[in-house]
Computed example of a mutant assay.
Amino acid sequence: MRWNTKLNRTIVQQVVLILLTFAMLYPLLWMIAGSFKSNATIFTTAHSLIPNQFNFESYRLGWKGFGNITFGTFFMNSTVITVASTIGSVLSSTLIAYGFARIKFTGKKLWFVCMMLTMMLPFEVIMVPQYIMFNWFGWINTYWPLILPTFFGTPFFIFLIIQFIRTIPNEIDEAAKIDGCSKFMIFWRIIMPLIVPAMMTSAIFSFYWRWDDFMGPLLYLNKPDLYPVSLGLRMFSDPDAVTNWNSLFAMSTLSIIPVFIIFFMFQRYIVEGISTSGLKQ
């Protein structure tokens, strides 16, 4: 009886989990199914996830893009922005986190509080001042407003990496000082190799945020040949004409492939980085 009760409980749990997973994935599955339907049958057969006839023309037309700009250009632009900003964000956040975690300096607590407070500021608060400043620099229609600010650290990543560094014993630093290492050498040769999981976690989150960013490119980029994927997808939607829904869904499906690849390749770092960053020595 006890074995049967345990088996029944396990079956119920698995069924519930499968149903919840399907409910969460349903919008994604509906979009993928819509990418293989014709534009006329997407909404008339919205109840079905299996197309009556698989139509690959939407992928060809969607990749063709607009004018002389193919969707490959949008992917390349997104890759440049995402990779550059991710590198800048992770490296700068790691260096700043090391300073807060290991180096004593005047006003350390004050600057840490100021850094944490910036996490509470919504983007809408700094949007207009930043635009005025970057416009004064002459950086509109360039990638500098999207990339350069990341080289000054990201508060969430700084806090995450600080918590990870605090799990490393201070005795390691002391031993390195006795061997003649400077603070930077301690950071580069000892601390950084030990905090790779936290850095990888930060890199994955940065990749997701930058790849999906819509508001930033919308503010600073006005030339279609500079658009990332997020703005390229918007061009399929035309309120004054017929929206090419199947091509929109097709390119949206392709745009999430890099996200899935990054997640499945580095998912172990996400768990390790987040689970360890909350511990203290």
Score class of each variant (00 low, 15 high):
residue 5 T to K: 15
residue 78 S to Q: 03
residue 179 D to R: 10
residue 47 H to K: 13
residue 148 L to A: 15
residue 270 I to K: 04
residue 273 G to Q: 06
residue 133 M to Y: 14
residue 129 P to L: 08
residue 2 R to M: 11
residue 168 I to C: 02
residue 86 T to H: 03
residue 102 R to I: 13
residue 168 I to T: 00
residue 144 W to T: 08
residue 218 L to H: 10
residue 188 W to T: 11
residue 197 P to Y: 05
residue 76 M to W: 15
residue 43 F to L: 12
residue 251 M to K: 07
residue 212 D to V: 13
residue 229 V to W: 07
residue 121 L to N: 02
residue 176 A to Q: 08
residue 93 S to A: 08
residue 95 L to W: 03
residue 1 M to T: 12
residue 140 I to A: 03
residue 94 T to N: 03
residue 280 K to R: 14
residue 87 I to D: 01
residue 21 T to C: 09
residue 186 I to T: 13
residue 251 M to G: 06
residue 22 F to T: 00
residue 144 W to N: 08
residue 22 F to L: 11
residue 102 R to W: 08
residue 170 N to V: 13
residue 86 T to L: 02
residue 141 N to V: 07
residue 91 L to Y: 12
residue 180 G to N: 08
residue 113 V to W: 13
residue 267 Q to D: 10
residue 98 Y to D: 03
residue 276 T to F: 05
residue 39 N to S: 13
residue 179 D to N: 12
residue 39 N to G: 09
residue 255 S to Q: 06
residue 159 F to M: 07
residue 224 P to C: 00
residue 80 V to C: 04
residue 21 T to M: 04
residue 161 I to D: 00
residue 150 T to V: 01
residue 189 R to V: 08
residue 106 T to E: 10
residue 221 L to M: 03
residue 30 W to N: 06
residue 140 I to V: 15
residue 239 P to S: 09
residue 89 S to K: 14
residue 225 D to L: 01
residue 27 P to A: 04
residue 124 E to F: 12
residue 161 I to G: 02
residue 46 A to L: 14
residue 165 I to M: 15
residue 198 A to W: 09
residue 263 F to W: 06
residue 166 R to H: 14
residue 111 W to D: 07
residue 161 I to P: 01
residue 32 I to T: 11
residue 56 F to D: 10
residue 233 L to H: 09
residue 106 T to N: 10
residue 72 G to Y: 11
residue 37 K to L: 10
residue 108 K to R: 15
residue 192 M to G: 05
residue 277 S to C: 04
residue 106 T to H: 12
residue 137 F to G: 04
residue 278 G to C: 00
residue 150 T to D: 07
residue 41 T to P: 03
residue 21 T to S: 14
residue 260 F to N: 04
residue 216 G to K: 02
residue 22 F to S: 00
residue 179 D to C: 09
residue 233 L to W: 08
residue 137 F to N: 01
residue 178 I to T: 12
residue 112 F to R: 07
residue 257 I to K: 05
residue 33 A to W: 07
residue 94 T to H: 03
residue 192 M to L: 15
residue 88 G to P: 05
residue 276 T to D: 00
residue 126 I to R: 10
residue 176 A to V: 05
residue 56 F to Y: 14
residue 202 S to Q: 08
residue 185 M to I: 12
residue 226 L to I: 03
residue 149 P to D: 07
residue 76 M to D: 02
residue 26 Y to W: 11
residue 265 M to I: 12
residue 210 R to K: 13
residue 135 N to M: 13
residue 244 N to M: 14
residue 28 L to N: 07
residue 105 F to G: 10
residue 111 W to G: 11
residue 23 A to F: 00
residue 142 T to V: 01
residue 43 F to R: 04
